[in-house]
Amino acid sequence: MKKLITLTVNGQQQEILVEPQQTLVEALRYTLGLTGTKEGCGNGNCGSCTVIMDGKIVNSCLVFAVEAAGKEIVTIEGVSQGGKLHPLQQAFMDEGALQCGFCTPGFIISGIALLNVNRHPTEEQIRHAFAGNLCRCTGYDKIVRATLKAAAL
């Protein structure tokens, strides 16, 4: 039987009906229509579903929607402010740090979370922070460089 839950998504309170076994990524994508968060594996191995929940990055494929009741979620749709790209998004664009774009929302969320706690990460720290985000197109080179560039701003 569906449960009614309330949660805040990108600053807006949302009241939604969810099946107990529905994961947060499914609720975000199919109940709220926020399809920017992707599901690449469903098992927490690829990071495509990364969102920020109460200030910390999590794999939304491994959170039941009911567990997210009362929480504050930030998805990729909530990153750019008033039509202006976040500096990390801009750096990705300038450096060519994306190709197919499927992993990109997850990287942006993880990257922002990193820069929020570490304003000047080293290359090694950036790679470690992105260990849970897989990319098959770029080889990570330009992703790391773009993140360093955004950090230097």
């Binding site: 994508r29 229509g33 926020l34 790209l85 998004q89 664009m93 994306l98 774009g101």
Partner: peptide, 23 residues
């Protein structure tokens, strides 16, 4: 020239639509 991809902004903001995103 090293011009930015024309699809960069939609992909970076999560607006770009992949097959599973359509309903």
């Amino acid at each position: 020239q090293r011009l930015p991809r024309v699809d960069a902004a939609t992909k970076l903001t999560g607006q770009a639509k992949f097959a599973a995103d359509f309903t």
